[in-house]
Computed example of a mutant assay.
Amino acid sequence: MTLTAQDWLAKIHALPLDHRVRIMNVCGGHERSITMAGIRSALPKTVELIAGPGCPVCVCPEEDVYQAIQLALRADVILVAFGDMLRVPVNVPKSQVRSLEQAKAGGADIRPIASPREAVKIAQQNPARAVVFFAAGFETTTAPVAAMLMEGVPDNLFVLLSARRTWPAVAMLLDSDTPGFDGLVAPGHVSTVMGPEEWIFVVKKHNIPTAVAGFMPVSLLAAMYSVLRQLLEGERFLDNCYPELVRPGGNRSAQAQIAQALDDTDANWRGIGVIPASGFALNPRFSGNDARSQYPDFDTEGRKRAGQMPPGCECASVVLGKINPNECKIYGRACTPKTPIGPCMVSDEGACRIWWAAGVRTNAAISAKNTPTADMG
């Protein structure tokens, strides 16, 4: 018999949970599904769901966004990027251009795209101009970038790569003194590409139950039930609650393309710092299409300030699951989707933007002084 979301929820409520359990998800899509479906308020009060480092736009280094802005403004290029990146602000005075969106409004040729194929098409349609593809993302969007390179790209297409691997951020949290969670819901789309086995270290090294989940409530609740049952029964294993798409070993073809086109590298995560082997760089064979080597004057060393967020912004703590979005001092005050200060309020995968869209409009500090806000999803 196939269980429904209501069935899984009933099974969770039937568990003898007599103490608080914290479950982290590390996928922006998971956080959006959890929030919009009202899963938080439907779970037992002893279960706390934490949004983790699941937003690639949120952790894209400030210096990479700044470099993209300067290329668009000062070089005769067409700059293309995934849509969310256009609104991410950098740390410059308000009198200066602070985002790609502002640069576009000022006359720079900046075009939002939805896939690497669009970047190739734009380069083919504009053979006399250089096209720079500002490619930020996790493994799910990095695999198509690698495939694009392996298939061959026009000589006038250059890639400004700002791609990250998901699991090293979780490993960093677990290796810290206060990881802050008891169970993990692992990302479905990343596991589809890289294989669920990437997450076995959470179980074997840290003895923390882990379950891969999809994006519908039934899969998410099944994963949460698995994690909670493992905790109660003393079992520890990696469970696959998204078997429709996640297969053992993942997508071998996509992995091979990543391995051939890209190299692992230490990488800076905005607001967090450098995490070893957490990033991707273009393999030297593609140096002719590497924007960093072809436009070295725009790679400003002085802007590499690990841990830098806009003043007052606590996006780093939100990304690491240390605080809830509405516990940031400027959430709902200076920082809203209309006037985003930090990257977590920009992206549809950012926890702050997701909570705002779900109706959480009041800062937690204000709520504590007055009547509580309506329970969020």
Rank of each mutant, 00 (worst) to 15 (best):
A135E: 03
A135R: 11
A136Y: 08
A136W: 00
T140Y: 02
T140S: 05
T141L: 11
T141H: 04
T141M: 11
T142L: 14
T142I: 14
A143M: 09
A147E: 12
M148D: 00
M148G: 02
L149Y: 03
M150S: 05
G152T: 01
V153Q: 01
P154V: 05
D155H: 11
D155E: 15
N156A: 02
N156E: 00
L157K: 13
L157S: 08
V159R: 07
V159Q: 01
L160S: 03
S162V: 08
A163H: 05
R164E: 01
T166V: 15
T166Q: 08
T166F: 04
A169D: 00
V170D: 00
V170E: 00
M172Q: 13
M172I: 02
L173H: 03
D175W: 02
D177V: 14
T178C: 05
T178E: 07
P179K: 12
G180P: 06
G180Y: 06
G180V: 09
G180A: 08
F181L: 10
D182S: 08
G183T: 06
G183R: 10
L184M: 09
V185H: 02
V185E: 01
A186I: 04
A186F: 03
P187M: 01
P187E: 00
H189W: 00
S191V: 04
S191Q: 04
S191Y: 03
V193M: 08
V193F: 01
V193K: 03
V193Y: 01
V193N: 00
M194S: 09
M194K: 06
M194C: 09
G195F: 07
P196G: 13
P196Q: 12
P196H: 11
E197L: 12
I200D: 11
I200F: 06
F201K: 12
F201M: 10
F201A: 10
V202W: 06
K204E: 11
K205R: 14
K205P: 00
K205D: 09
H206P: 05
N207M: 10
G214D: 03
F215T: 05
M216C: 03
M216L: 12
V218M: 07
V218D: 07
V218R: 15
S219P: 04
S219F: 02
L221P: 03
A222K: 15
A223R: 14
M224S: 04
Y225I: 09
S226E: 12
S226F: 09
S226A: 15
S226P: 05
V227A: 10
V227I: 14
V227P: 08
L228K: 12
R229M: 12
R229Y: 09
L231V: 10
L231S: 06
E233T: 15
E233M: 13
E235I: 08
F237E: 12
L238K: 13
N240G: 11
N240R: 13
C241W: 05
P243A: 04
V246A: 02
P248V: 12
